[in-house]
Design a protein around this nucleic acid. Sequence first.
RNA 1: GGCGGCAUAGCCAAGCUGGCUAAGGCACGGGUCUGCAAAACCCUGAUCCCCGGUUCGAGUCCGGGUGCCGCCUCCA
Length: 475
Amino acid sequence: MLKVYNTASKSLEEFKPLNQKKIGIYVCGVTVYDFCHIGHGRSAVAFDLIYRYFKYKGYDVTFVKNFTDVDDKIINKANKENVSCEEISNRYIEEYYKDMEKLNIEKPTYEPKATKHINEIIELVKKLIEKGYAYEVDGDVYFSVEKFKNYGKLSHKNIDELKSGARVEVNENKKSPLDFALWKKSKEGEPWWESPWGKGRPGWHIECSAMSMKYLGESFDIHGGGEDLIFPHHENEIAQSEAATEKPFAKYWIHNGFVRINKEKMSKSLGNFFTLRDVLKKYNGETLRYFLLLTHYRSPIDFSFEGLDAAKEALNRFYNFVQRLEETEFFKDGERDENIDKYLDSMIERFELAMDDDFNAPKAVGEVFATIRMFNQYLDSVEKKDKKPFKGYREKFLEDVNKISDVLGVFDASSANWFIPEDIDVEWVKKKIEERTVARKNKDYETADKIRDELAKYGVVLEDSRNYTRWKVKR
RNA sequence: GGCGGCAUAGCCAAGCUGGCUAAGGCACGGGUCUGCAAAACCCUGAUCCCCGGUUCGAGUCCGGGUGCCGCCUCCA
């Protein structure tokens, strides 16, 4: 039974889809005006994990993640560089895809842009005005928060408290400080579209309502995003959408926690961020993804390079084991062992149990490593007793790890991608190792050590075992 | 000021609808292997921020502290 934490109810709920096996997920994506930082990466990984797990569970998932491509920040940047907003947004969408590919993020079903849905947005705003939920003042259109009786139900805020706590309102057009813009009159130098209220552009929240409804229908299963979006963005989305359709909007609200630097939220405005680009120069995408997966998606992650190093070492351990499986000879009539039987049989089950519990990836990962330890112990003992390892164990492990890998997006079933970089001449390395083996047989250790040192310059690490020399390029 | 979250070994991190040995990873230390070395593998460690309560039994529930963080403004 899959349980998900619903921000709206502040509790774990059993996941019950709206329409059997067909589910819809909408996640707020990024505003494309700059490179993505680790926080964006975290959110992407979290929802990618969720998307993949639903598919694993047999759901037919329509996954929508938008690009906000019209916004003050984009306009500012465009004006600063003296180029169009479109050029800015297209540029950073391109960069976004490069980062996402390295993080092994699967492409959502749809990735709509706000600027391509102006008609839908205008229709929605018109409907809200007709229904009396919105009003126009001098080319701007605002949503009247007090008209929507359930306002605050997601973020658990109370309208009166919000009112008393509201900051000094700069916008004189609004009837109430809580009201928010659905449509904004365009100023000089800003992009605009024709509308019943004159030349203008959409407000921030309305695009997500318009696009989610277009691709997923008026009511859908899951809506997600970073926890900073709960208020006001998602609260406003609910108000707009439910006011317009008079139907429940999203059923489950899922929010990921922040990435922090020294206990503080990583954010553009604080300036304490690392871009994905920067980190990916030093660490590969799998390491970063694994690092992000190691903390439950709702908890804060303290970003650190020490943490990335630990993540890298953990993956080394995983791939060392895979390599061991690759290089060990297994036999159909090999030695069986009760303990390893138990662990291998239950690995997938334990994985699912963990994931069913609100996508507990850190726990799921732990189950894999626990199995690896048992398997290593088994192989050690079999070797020591000069017996043969059982072939079925390797097959079972690899088969199940493959399934797990499809969900987690880390843990390849082959060690080569991890240990052997593309730019290394494998044949040359093998030749050198052979030369060294000959030297060692002749007890010419001087030559052997020289070859070892030479290979070490290229990062090649040798592991001498009883019968052969194994090698890798350690990350 | 209002609302909410977190505090587990040297570090990271699961567990928290109470009860099996408090997962897993990193680091340290010990060992196996080895020509040496490295690598690899195995082993080893915490009674869960403090105080009080509920209970046969609490890291897990309740109350009170302390500390840290987030939202209330653009933000994944």
